[in-house]
Design a protein around this nucleic acid. Structure first.
Lengths: 331, 331
DNA sequence: TTTTAGCAATGTCAATATGCAAGTGCTAAT
DNA sequence: ATTAGCACTTGCATATTGACATTGCTAAAA
């Protein structure tokens, strides 16, 4: 079992390493623990045997292992009160009522990125719990229109639709009316099937060229249902961290940020703030992702901070909690 | 003056260096020019004195200088017919009429990115020559609405607007009607001043709480006028090029791609395909930007390819020309 | 039983040396 | 105008070295 002084020691080593990015030697901890370096070394050895510490090479100081960070986050870390100044900045953003919630979230995470030098991500799911509020059609020319779809949560998507042949405007109006009559209030997810099974049979009967019109709307509406929206801030911040001084690492991380499946890797289902260290992150073994789901009337989403494993866990966790609170308490 | 064999030599050196990324030595060119390495060296020396070649160090082979590339592009490069296969891919995209032009452009540049391993950019200006077609207002709740603005070219922008107090729906309708009556057909650029000087005096008289409503619309509409839309493809492609093997270069380039003023650096005013080498690019001394403005009925924009100075100029220029043609000939 | 002092062992890191390969500039001969 | 020959310069990859940090172990001390 891990002893009490060993816990203190592990905590010290993690925090020291987070601060300096250099392996921590036994000598440097003598004063703090009022004992000799040999004693520290003995404890270090135990901690290493338990898997909490590692050496970069045989005669280096110790560095926390993934398990070490894990233990630190779960058992040792003390909540670090977010500074008054930082708190104020974030609060100011959220109390500015004229700022749309989405923008407030993005802005607050920009601040966190700046303060921490990590990368932050906002991931909003558009379709969650959204019902169709209105379909609008605006004619642009004889052969093209813009279809606009609005949900009851205020999300808007538009699609330019071009037709092969000239389109009759009364046909369009009819179709639009029909769509509005039958689809208002329907959850976005249900729309594709509703279109196929309820609308299609009707439209076929009283709109000529119905296929052309129907296909266009089908495209526009079902596209909308699946949209996800990812916003990174400070993508390059993380590259400033000293652990990423090798070209390949840098390229690797950047290309992971650009990759298509970023959404699935970041999306979070837990309601509390959770910490995924290294391999736990499913993202990159050298990175830690701290994230949480937020939940508002209008929208669910994920906010996340991405940094090196050597991260200021206490600070980041608290900031994220604070932002989550601000998001959710803003009615 | 630059002699005829020297021109051939410069051409060879550029093309060889583009292919191999290694300084070109005199010996390697003997066979091709049917003379000894010493002769080549003499010519190389002249070319160096004229500023077209450089050495990386005193005993290395030669590398084209910026002026060398410039001369190559302006005088030596032969148009390299784009391969039938590549041509087909691009044509297929553009002939698919159901794909919106915007998407076709993006897709075709994705292909170019893949084929060349450079980075491509599409930059569309939203406001250019766009006139307001319609303003729509959709109520979401008692205190919030979505304002939707559509232009005659089919661009759509929406903005969520929250009000401090409950909003009267007839007030909104009145305002919307007024806006539509007075603004339809007006170029987007002129809208902010029109709002301020023509609309404000009227609205003040017959809408109570007019300030709240006015400000919200002012925000939404003037924001719209200034939007630009940038889409990168293959941001990390360029990092695969061997010249970017130093961490700092990589970080530097990535942060330039992320920076806010990317638009102004990429935007092009010339109608032909133009090549900006190194410092000419105003972007980064180690990069070349090949770009052109395209012009369609609906929209102007810029397409660009970003690569190392050591770029396959002939190939890239031709591809861009081909895509430009495809864009513009698609009525 | 726990802690400590002392010491050999082992690794990093930076500076220095060494040899090889590539390619040049110059000179004198063709 | 071209060429052959040669001394010279540099990069690069590979060892060599010494200074330094830190460890593990052992045996003595608390």
């Amino acid at each position: 079992m891990i002893g009490s002084r060993q816990k203190d020691l592990l905590k010290c080593i993690v925090e020291e390493y987070v601060k300096t990015a250099r392996p921590v030697g036994s000598k440097s901890l003598c004063k703090k623990f009022k004992c000799s370096s040999a004693t520290i070394r003995n404890d270090m050895m135990s901690l290493e045997e338990m898997g909490y510490l590692e050496k970069t090479h045989i005669s280096s100081g110790r560095v926390p292992s993934e398990a070490g960070y894990r233990y630190y986050v779960d058992n040792l870390m003390e909540p670090k009160k977010i500074s008054g100044e930082d708190m104020l900045k974030i609060q100011t953003i959220f109390s500015n009522k004229s700022l749309a919630l989405d923008d407030a979230i993005t802005k607050s995470l920009e601040i966190v990125s700046d303060m921490t030098n990590y990368t932050s991500v906002v991931l909003g799911s558009k379709s969650k719990d959204n019902n169709l509020q209105k379909v609008e059609v605006i004619p642009i020319s004889n052969t093209s229109i813009v279809a606009i779809v609005v949900t009851d949560k205020g999300h808007v998507e538009s699609k330019n639709i071009s037709f092969e042949k000239e389109i009759d405007s009364t046909e369009l109006t009819k179709t639009t009316e029909l769509l509005n009559k039958m689809l208002i209030g329907i959850p976005l997810d249900d729309i594709p099937s509703k279109l196929e099974f309820d609308i299609k049979p009707i439209i076929r009967n009283y709109v000529k060229n119905y296929e052309m019109v129907y296909n266009a709307f089908y495209d526009a509406l079902s596209n909308f249902a699946s949209g996800k929206d990812v916003r990174f801030t400070g993508k390059t911040n993380i590259l400033k961290q000293p652990e990423f001084s090798a070209v390949d690492d840098v390229k690797n991380i950047i290309s992971k940020f650009e990759s298509k499946d970023v959404v699935s890797k970041i999306e979070e289902s837990a309601d509390e703030v959770k910490v995924y260290i290294g391999s736990e992150s499913e993202f990159d073994d050298n990175l830690t992702v701290v994230k949480t789901k937020y939940h508002t009337k209008g929208k669910d989403g994920t906010i996340a901070i991405i940094g090196p494993k050597r991260m200021e866990y206490d600070r980041v966790v608290n900031m994220l909690e604070y932002i989550k609170e601000n998001i959710e308490s803003r009615e």
